[in-house]
Design a protein around this nucleic acid. Structure first.
Lengths: 190, 190
DNA sequence: CCGTAAGTGGATGGGTCATCCGTTTCAACG
DNA sequence: CGTTGAAACGGATGACCCATCCACTTACGG
């Protein structure tokens, strides 16, 4: 579990790799480790040492966004209306999911297949479970729905909105929110 | 548009390729043209001539299932209750989408990117549009929802159910149906 | 300043992809 | 039937990508 602190140059390289990868993701290019290495003017082996697979790199690129989402969830927990809190958080999740191309694959992957994000995703899941639990006890949501359903469903919505590849990102985000609304209408109880 | 009829041996090879590819799809192996060729004991070039890309091959493999679905839609149009017809058809669609691994990619692709399936998908879309239109005039469904929404949403549901890679196919199908129900509850009007 | 462990780079073997072209097979016609 | 031209075939091949290995360099504690 101990992570011996990285040497200065290593940390620098690592950072540089992440930056380049982030640019790749944003531009929709797929992450090829060799390619990233060349673009970053860094040896291939260095990249492979830091990130054994493209997924690992992607995961690291996605990290800040996931963290932000966790904070968002905790913030939502501070709200007082169970339904509103849940809905707002879900909307935020969809929005970021459709805005940052790094996120969908990370969320779609099995929780424990990820090195770093695993804990975060678990944290997110539990914060989210709490939001759901509140909604359940408040009786404002279909009692049969668990957080084990919601994460895939969110991914599904993001996926559906993303299929419309002709649309601009902003339009896709709007579409995603609309789809979320549709789903939530089905889940809402009064 | 004219398709000069295939020579006997060519047709035979083509068939053989499709059969092998179907096996690949069913076993979840990804379609690699070279690989398929070797398995089918057929020259690589032959495979490439018949199917320039893996997508083209996949499309052809999926064809019968798509045709079946079109028939199903037309059959549904014979029913008299708009809502039931729509719901039953959607359930059938989800079921086959989750049962046949060849279908999701084909449906997710842009309609006009496909060679053969394009027409079929258009036919499906129009039969489906008819089902929706009936539901609309009967006032039993959210008026804002179009068939341009429904296909992606279906794919999204299939996607969500498929993420649960730990589940057996049958369980995933059941899950998909449940998700569909959730969505439909959101769309239903009375 | 030196020793050592951590870090680096890129050459390279292994693998996949898809094209090209010399050969074979079909089937139409005399 | 036998001939012939077009259609189809096959696999060798060059281009490309992936990821490992190891000889070299660099940071940094003593």
């Amino acid at each position: 579990m101990s992570t011996p602190p990285l040497r200065k140059d290593a940390a620098q390289n690592r950072q540089r790799i992440i930056e380049v990868a982030r640019r790749y993701v944003d531009e929709g290019r797929l992450l090829q480790l060799n390619d990233v290495a060349r673009t970053a003017s860094i040896g291939v082996a260095t990249v492979y040492r830091h990130f054994p697979t493209p997924e690992a790199l992607l995961e690291t690129v996605a990290l800040p966004a996931v963290e932000a989402l966790v904070r968002r969830a905790e913030h939502a927990l501070a709200g007082d209306d169970a339904w509103t809190a849940l809905r707002d958080f879900l909307a935020a999740a969809i929005e970021v999911l459709l805005t940052d191309p790094a996120l969908p694959p990370v969320f779609a992957a099995a929780t424990d297949a990820l090195e770093h994000t695993g804990d975060l995703k678990r944290g997110l899941a539990s914060a989210f479970a709490e939001l759901l639990a509140r909604a359940h006890t408040a009786g404002v949501i279909d009692p049969g729905v668990t957080e084990a359903d919601m994460i895939p469903l969110l991914c599904g919505i993001a996926y559906a909105a993303n299929i419309q590849s002709a649309l601009a990102p902003a339009e896709r985000a709007a579409l995603g929110l609309r789809y979320l609304d549709l789903l939530l209408t089905g889940l809402h109880r009064t």
